[in-house]
């Protein structure tokens, strides 16, 4: 129980829930903007853009909150991969593709010294420290386009920002799908364990 609280403190669970909801809304509203059509209108584009902007700004705040708390607590250290990450990832990948169907034990157990397996570490690190900042930065520029971009090169800058924004959004969408599947795969019990602090957590570890 004590370990669980250290690995998944309240602020982290709160951030995770808010971040997850915001990401889902942003992906859906982003798709509705990208594929806008007069033929299928659930909401007016104006409202969709408002929702997207609102959630985008909230995501920036949420991301800053995450970065600050990560730097103030031990949680940040779990994300940064070591040089052995690629070698370890192959071991973990082999486990997911083969070992788990043979009843093998997990190659990397989560405890206070290591919260994430190498694949999780790579995915979380790249999402939070590469794709999320790219999204936030390019989104912020596009949101303030009329204030920030006023010269002749602004169109090119906008097009590059849009390209990066959409590519990063796609990567985060892929991450979301895999993340949800892995959560499902780990089982509802694990989900409950993380959310509701299952009493059996320490027995398992």
């Amino acid at each position: 129980m004590e370990n669980l609280n250290k690995l998944y403190p309240f602020w982290l669970r709160l951030w995770h829930s808010v971040n997850g909801i915001l990401c889902v809304i942003l992906v859906i509203s982003g798709l509705m903007m990208q594929y806008a059509s007069p033929e299928w209108i659930l909401l007016s584009l104006n409202k969709i853009v408002f929702i997207h902007n609102f959630c985008g700004i909230s995501l920036i705040i949420s991301w800053i909150f995450f970065i600050i708390f990560n730097s103030l607590t031990q949680n940040g250290s779990y994300y940064w991969p070591k040089l052995t990450i690629f070698k370890e990832s192959i071991i973990e990948l082999r486990y997911y593709a083969y070992g788990m169907f043979k009843g093998e034990a997990k190659p990397f157990k989560d405890d206070l010294s290591r919260k994430f397996n190498p694949l999780q570490q790579m995915a979380y690190w790249s999402t939070m420290y590469i794709f999320a900042p790219l999204m936030v930065f390019t989104g912020f520029i596009m949101y303030n386009i009329d204030r920030l971009l006023t010269d002749d090169k602004s169109l090119l800058v906008y097009q590059i920002c849009d390209f990066i924004h959409i590519c990063a959004a796609f990567m985060i969408s892929i991450f979301l799908v895999i993340h949800l599947y892995l959560a499902f795969m780990e089982g509802l019990n694990n989900f409950k364990k993380i959310i509701f602090k299952s009493k059996n957590y320490e027995e398992h570890n």
Binding site: A36, S37, P38, L45
Partner: peptide
């Protein structure tokens, strides 16, 4: 007033 008249493939 419908944004999608411009912001769409058509």
């Amino acid at each position: 007033r419908e944004c999608t008249k411009c912001h769409s493939q058509k």
